[in-house]
Design a protein around this nucleic acid. Structure first.
Length: 695
DNA sequence: AGCACGCCGACT
DNA sequence: GTCGGCGTGCTC
């Protein structure tokens, strides 16, 4: 009877077997890769995407219906999603669910019976077909029709009399975020011709990657896009946030480029319409967020990734890809342009090996001064006297001073001055954050809130002191000496609504703005006279292998996009990051950092993957962890397992492991058999994060 | 969306 | 010690 079986991608996690599911061809015999289908799955009917031939196996259920039009997803998009699933150890369906507007694609999906029902069908099959012919049925309703007649499903599938239509309306909704274009950011600089020349070379010959270092970068991106458009290439410009994407989209539209927005801020129907409209297009500029790296425009593309290190470029669900890594793969036959105020150490290394061309934009030098906390007279204060004085002078003179705290709220924790204990969450065991306005403690993990105690939970002591300084405590201290002190962090914006409106009085009248790093995207618009980075040691000494490059990036962003003198409070004035930000060039810092990375076995010399194993049964979780810990492959180490702190009352236990390997292929070779093999018993989940952004 | 299975509480 | 409810996991 039927044609060869088909591999179908469903949006379900990777598990025993394979990255996709296999069905008898049924109604989908001979359809091309990328065709949408409806398949029976348990008692449900699910939409999926045909990948190609599958492995024959007894007992396969048949594809019930094809979705029109065919193919629904262009084959190159399926190729890229399949590659991403393999590299980041997810199912192909999970990757496609991120790569295309998955929910919108299927919204309004209905089973439909177009042809006259064949006389050869059995009475139950004919009855069901008749119901569907009379009125197209959504999948949930159609599934119920087959509950009492399972054999009718196979019959209708083989007969191929059912099809499915996607009924989503193609409605455009204008983006709500008002795009902000910085004055002076768009004007073509003297480097425009140089940028175009280098990008044109990268489009024509290896290496296909270009690193643009400096700020502002908008004009360079526009020049690069023009170089691509001149060859009728498409461009995908990828930004870490909707606001950043909207800002560039406005600038590119104002410059007369054919802009197509494809970002996470669009309503689902609008995003679907935009996605459909891009299929096979050349000579367009797609402006979007991370999933737009899968835009269905025709290859070759110039892929522009702005600020590749920003957390917005890391997908949060499986596959947890990095935008720049997928872009680099897609740019094998195209070109990749990465732009950064401060490049990552890994990207800079590529310019030294010849894997990447380098363009240095004319950029102002950050002005940084150090306040040595070792000899301060007032160690108990959350901000040094010198910094306080500087802020006061600027604010009194009607200028604008920014004070950057390392956290929002009042203080990191309540600390007992007698026994040294810190108040902890009774459920999670982590230190609770102290919010003075409400006199409550909050847990970062579970969100639990408790009234602040009067006595230490451990020793009963009454001298509980705030530890560290958040925006709230800093603002309280500064109000004693400086006029017009305001707070700006995620909490304040959540309460106050529009961030720009909240900043308006500071822009207009000056004063002191106490903020977290949440303020960074707004720096160019603030026209600052002074910036203070309090407690800089927290940034310099974070327990993370990239602490140094992150701290350098923060200092440079403050100095360059903030445009004002930066005062850094530190007890470690000789730290290499402080030397680097004061040095005329960055090369020394990167060379030293690369030497360390090589010695210690960190990226870019090795690839890391974080694996979390969780479940209710301690024995099964431990057995999977032990199985993974024992996995061996050339050049691969498995570190751990470490116990994850369990929440009190939670039934789940967790184990964390880190895989260190020469490349992503080696990571996959170790992890894929573990995740998909028989070693994972029911009830145990394995979550994989290849190239985690923090470790 | 429905069905199997396992854990825990109630009860012959 | 057994029965059965309910919560959790599975479905090519």
């Amino acid at each position: 009877m039927s044609a060869d079986p088909l591999a179908v991608a469903l949006d379900l996690p990777l598990r025993a077997g394979d990255a996709s599911f296999t069905f008898a061809a049924g109604a989908a015999a001979g359809v091309p890769r990328g065709t949408g289908v409806v398949v029976p799955f348990g008692a449900r009917l699910l939409p999926g995407i045909v990948l190609g031939p599958g492995e024959p196996r007894p007992g396969l259920r048949p594809v019930l219906a094809r979705v029109e039009p065919t193919p629904l997803v262009p084959a190159p998009v399926v190729d890229l999603a399949e590659w991403t699933a393999r590299e980041y150890v997810s199912s192909t369906g999970e990757a496609l669910a991120v790569a295309v507007p998955w929910d919108a694609l299927w919204s309004g999906l209905r089973l439909w019976c177009r042809d006259r029902v064949a006389d050869a069908l059995s009475p139950p099959a004919r009855a069901i077909a008749g119901r569907i012919a009379a009125r197209p049925q959504p999948l949930s309703r159609a599934a119920r029709l087959f509950v009492d007649a399972p054999e009718a499903l196979a019959e209708l599938a083989e007969a191929g009399v059912l099809s499915a239509i996607v009924g989503a309306p193609s409605v455009w909704r204008a983006p709500t975020a008002a795009a902000r274009v910085e004055a002076g950011d768009v004007a073509p600089g003297p480097g425009e011709e140089a940028v175009r020349a280098v990008v044109a070379e990268a489009m024509a010959a290896d290496p296909h990657a270009v690193l643009v270092v400096g700020w502002p970068r908008t004009a360079a991106y526009l020049a690069a896009a023009r170089a691509a458009l001149a060859s009728r290439w498409a461009v995908a410009a990828l930004f870490p946030s909707v606001d950043a994407a909207e800002g560039f989209a406005a600038a590119a539209a104002a410059a007369g480029l054919p802009v197509h927005r494809l970002h996470a801020g669009l309503a689902p129907a609008a995003r679907l319409a935009a996605w459909r409209g891009l299929a096979g297009m050349r000579g367009v500029v797609v402006v979007g967020t991370r999933a737009a790296v899968f835009a269905p425009a025709a290859d070759p593309l110039l892929l522009i990734v702005d600020d590749e290190d920003a957390s917005g470029h890391k997908e949060e669900r499986a596959p947890r890809f990095l935008t720049a890594a997928v872009a680099a793969h897609r740019a094998r036959d195209g070109a990749l342009l990465v732009g950064a105020t401060t490049p990552t150490v890994a990207r800079f290394a590529e310019t030294q090996t010849g894997a990447c061309r380098l363009i240095a934009l004319p950029t102002r030098r950050p002005r940084v001064g150090v306040i040595d906390l070792r000899r301060r007279p007032d160690p108990a204060e959350p901000i040094s006297r010198a910094a306080r004085e500087a802020v006061r002078r600027v604010a009194r003179a009607g200028g604008r001073a920014l004070v950057v705290a390392d956290r929002k709220g009042y203080a990191a924790a309540l600390h007992c001055a007698e026994c040294g204990a810190v108040e902890r969450c009774p459920s999670c065991g982590v230190a609770m954050v102290y919010d003075r306005a409400s006199r409550r403690l909050g847990c970062r993990l579970c969100g639990r809130r408790l009234p602040a105690p009067d006595r230490c939970a451990r020793c009963g002591g009454v001298r509980l002191r705030p530890l560290g300084a958040g925006t709230e405590r800093l603002a309280a201290v500064l109000r004693r000496s400086a006029p017009r002190v305001m707070r700006f962090d995620a909490d304040a914006v959540a309460r106050g609504g529009d961030a720009d409106a909240m900043l308006a009085p500071f822009r207009a009248r000056g004063g002191a703005l106490v903020a977290t790093t949440y303020v960074l995207p707004y720096l160019p618009s603030l026209h600052l006279d002074l910036i203070v980075l309090t407690a800089a040691d927290r940034w310099l000494h974070r327990p993370e292998y990239r602490a140094a490059e992150r701290a350098l990036a923060l200092l440079r962003t403050l100095g360059i996009t903030g445009g004002a003198q930066v005062l850094v409070e530190t007890a470690d004035p000789e730290h290499p990051v402080l030397r680097a930000v004061l040095a005329p060039g960055l090369r020394t810092f990167y060379d030293e950092e690369l030497t360390l990375r090589r010695q210690l076995g960190f990226p870019p010399y090795r690839v890391l993957a974080a694996v979390t194993i969780s479940g209710r049964s301690v024995a099964s979780v431990d057995s999977v962890a032990a199985h993974l810990a024992a996995a061996r492959a050339a050049g691969v180490e498995v570190l751990g397992p470490a116990l994850l702190r369990a929440r009190a009352g939670a039934r789940e236990v967790g184990r964390a492991l880190v895989v260190r390997a020469p490349d992503r292929t080696a990571v996959r070779e170790v992890l894929w058999p573990v995740v998909t093999g028989a070693a994972v018993p029911p009830g145990v989940r394995v979550a994989v994060d290849v190239e985690p952004i923090e470790l």
